[in-house]
Amino acid sequence: MKHLITAFILTGLLISCNSSDKTKTTTQETSDTETTAESLSTAIPKNLKAIETNEDLIATSLMAAPAESRAKSKVIGYNMAGEFVTLKEGENEFIVLADDPNKDGFNAACYHKDLEPFMARGRALRAEGKSSEEIFDIREEEMKSGKFTITPGATLHIYYGPNTTYDPETSMVDGAQLRYVIYMPWSTSASTGIPETPSAPDHPWLMNPGTHRAHIMISPMAKDKS
């Protein structure tokens, strides 16, 4: 009789353990299925549109500016016809240089209006056929002579990526991201304490130290799109 009771108890324990394992397995499978479904839903392509008009160009290029400043920022650059024009008038401290529709990928920049003489000089020298090295040297000498200045702390925001399609609901360009520049003319690592190479991803570093074009570079890591 005692052996029979023991057998019943063991059988009950085995059934209980088996049920528990099945419950855990079922719960895990459900969780895995939900995770897979969530991943698939986020991977569904958005309703993307090609940048085909000046309005598209303005909307996407303004993404380089801070969100609260976009409505009143001035936009300049090449229009869809290849003419360098003012695409949109502005009334705040920012100028947006629109993406050039005749070049591969997307690259728009937003900078403080006090940087316009420096930027305009670079565009003029480039139009003359000067190389990047020649432009650097010429502007270096002109800064030293006082022909123009760069206010320390003036910012440049660059919105860039490999694609030229965008979400018309948000104006975000597919695959684009931001990087930031803070101009600090003539600064060095010794004068600022900022390293000349990034210490880690997302960390600021000083580029072109000791020159007119010394600037703090901040390149945020790309967002995980999975």
Rank of each mutant, 00 (worst) to 15 (best):
Ala59Asp: 07
Thr33Asn: 12
Pro117Asp: 06
Gly105Met: 02
Thr42Gln: 10
Asn79His: 06
Ala81Ser: 13
Glu93Met: 09
Leu40Thr: 14
Ala108Ile: 06
Lys74Gln: 13
Leu40Glu: 14
Glu52Gly: 03
Thr42Val: 14
Asp104Met: 10
Ala120Trp: 07
Ala50Val: 10
Phe94Lys: 03
Lys103Cys: 03
Thr86Ala: 07
Lys72Thr: 15
Ser31Tyr: 13
Lys46Asn: 08
Lys74Val: 01
Glu52Lys: 09
Ala71Ser: 12
Phe118Lys: 10
Leu48Lys: 05
Ala120Tyr: 08
Arg121Leu: 15
Thr53Gln: 00
Ala67Val: 12
Leu48Pro: 01
Ala65Met: 03
Ala120Gly: 08
Leu87Trp: 07
Gly90Lys: 07
Thr27Cys: 03
Lys113Trp: 03
Thr26Ile: 13
Glu68Thr: 10
Ser69Trp: 01
Val75Cys: 02
Leu62Phe: 04
Val96Gln: 03
Asp114Ser: 15
Ala109Met: 15
Asp104Asn: 13
Ile44Pro: 00
Asp100Thr: 07
Thr60Tyr: 03
Ile95Leu: 08
Asn47Thr: 12
Ser69Pro: 00
Leu48Trp: 11
Leu57Glu: 00
Leu115Gly: 03
Asn92Gly: 11
Leu125Ala: 09
Arg121Asn: 15
Ile58Gln: 02
Leu115Cys: 06
Glu34Trp: 08
Gly82Asp: 02
Phe94Leu: 14
Pro101Phe: 08
Glu93Lys: 09
Cys110Ala: 15
Ala64Asn: 03
Ala120Phe: 10
Pro45Ser: 03
Gly82Trp: 08
Ala109Gln: 14
Glu34Gly: 00
Leu40Tyr: 11
Thr53Arg: 00
Phe94Tyr: 14
Thr86Phe: 08
Asn79Gly: 05
Cys110Asn: 05
Leu48Gly: 05
Phe106Tyr: 13
Tyr78Val: 11
Ala81Ile: 01
Asn102Ser: 11
Thr60Trp: 03
Asn47Ile: 03
Glu83Gln: 14
Glu29Val: 12
Ile58Ser: 02
Gly122Lys: 04
Thr36Trp: 12
Asn79Gln: 06
Lys49Gly: 00
Ala109Cys: 11
Asp56Ile: 03
Glu91Trp: 03
Lys103Phe: 05
Gly82Leu: 10
Glu34Thr: 13
Ala124His: 09
His112Gln: 15
Ala59Tyr: 02
Phe106Glu: 06
Ala71Cys: 01
Leu125Glu: 08
Pro101Ile: 06
Lys113Thr: 12
Ala65Thr: 02
Glu38Trp: 11
Glu89Leu: 08
Asp32Asn: 14
Ser61Pro: 04
Asp56Gly: 06
Ile44Gln: 12
Leu97Lys: 05
Asp100Asn: 15
Leu40His: 12
Phe118Gly: 04
Leu62Glu: 04
Phe84Met: 09
Gly90Asp: 09
Pro117Lys: 05
Leu115Val: 05
Ala98Asn: 04
Asn102Met: 13
Glu116Leu: 14
Lys88Gly: 07
Lys49Arg: 11
Thr86His: 07
Lys72Ala: 13
Thr33Tyr: 12
Pro101Glu: 04
Asn102Asp: 13
Ala59Asn: 12
Leu115Phe: 07
Asp32His: 11
Thr30Leu: 12
Ser31Phe: 10
Ala43Glu: 08
Lys88Trp: 09
Arg70Cys: 07
Ile51Tyr: 02
Thr42Arg: 15
Ala64Met: 02
Thr27Lys: 15
Asn47Ser: 13
Pro45Cys: 05
